[in-house]
Design a protein around this nucleic acid. Structure first.
Lengths: 197, 197
DNA sequence: GACGAAATTGGACAGTCGTCCTAAATGTTG
DNA sequence: CAACATTTAGGACGACTGTCCAATTTCGTC
């Protein structure tokens, strides 16, 4: 027997991909059922409503990102290298970003427009990255500018993702990466230094 | 008698607002009909399909933006001041952006996800701003960096809009504006100068 | 005022949506 | 093997979708 928890995991995985590729509202039970190869009626056994699936997907994404950040915390040497890891996501995930945009940003935007109950929960993924980045900048000695710098990098990633999806211009993404890395170098030049403004 | 062209205009206006506030797919004929106060069946007289309404909305947005840019070309004194006009949109339209995001970016993202036929047409609004910004930077003497700088500012606006909608942080928007304005000042410092990388 | 064109109405239509229930199949345990 | 709980399949349901049409009203013109 396939345990219920396994089927549930498959549903969440498929929903995660489909919500990313098509958007939450555009993805139907039928779509997910086809991907997991189960009957539509089976959903009700695992999830009472579509919103419950969304909650599970957001929880999974939160968990996945926490693991990713933890890995960077372990492997990358120094705060600057860790911030670089974040910056380079737009290159690592370039293909998907050019096709579907940023998984965090696009979901946040979609849920905000319809004022969905899970809107706040989805925002927490954004907050997660923001707080993590802030810690890195603080470790870098940015002091009170740490929060600003964190949001600056976070916003940068969202802008790059949006334009990458619109123009599908690989060179643009690479230019923006080298541009922000140069900016980052300027930050590390001196301790307690404010960013270039 | 109310001319057909007038009813059509009202439909497009209402659709424009609703597509922005709720998204294209989330907006139904019933929504637009309620806003314009006409019967649902009346749509078919003015538009054959929902996609036709979308096309009309995109055309209107293109037209509106062209007029806005033309106004800036006339009134603002110098390329730098004109770029500043663009940058300050995120402050002028702050309330709407915090509620619904960027009207250009969110539509582009939504249509790209479902690979909608009007996707390219919607992108033209983004292109319109990109080309206009490029002209300004060229006039500023940025030469070959003009395109890069244009996309940099365009991407910046998208990132700010996304985070503004997620966090609804007015101060963040203002900080980012002053930050990019400082960057812009650096650009104008010398002719033919490459941006800070 | 009568006529024809323009514009609007309300509903029919086939399809899809999320939800929900019952019956069947499957696996586990005595 | 029998009794049981767990899991799945398939379809019914009411509501909503975009589309489309026939009947009606409104308008400009003779």
């Amino acid at each position: 027997m396939v345990a219920a928890v396994e089927t549930r995991r498959q549903i969440v995985d498929a929903a995660d991909s489909l919500f990313y590729a098509q958007g939450f509202a555009q993805t139907s039970f039928a779509d997910i059922a086809a991907a997991v190869k189960i009957s539509r009626g089976n959903f009700y056994y695992h999830f009472k409503t579509k919103d419950e699936i969304l909650e599970a997907v957001i929880d999974k994404r939160l968990s996945d990102r926490r693991k990713l950040l933890a890995k960077w915390d372990e492997t990358a040497d120094g705060a600057k290298k860790r911030i670089e890891c974040f910056i380079r996501i737009v290159i690592v995930n370039q293909a998907k970003i050019m096709a579907y945009g940023c998984p965090v940003g696009t979901l946040t935007t979609e849920l905000a427009k319809v004022d969905h109950p899970s809107r706040e929960r989805a925002n927490e993924i954004m907050v997660l990255f923001g707080d993590w980045l802030e810690r890195q900048f603080r470790e870098l000695g940015c002091g009170e500018s740490s929060r600003d710098n964190a949001l600056h990098v976070l916003g940068w990633s969202q802008g790059v993702a949006t334009l990458a999806q619109a123009f599908k211009d690989k060179a643009y993404v690479e230019r923006e990466v080298s541009k922000i890395l140069t900016w980052l170098d300027g930050i590390t030049a001196g301790p307690e230094q404010k960013h270039s403004q």
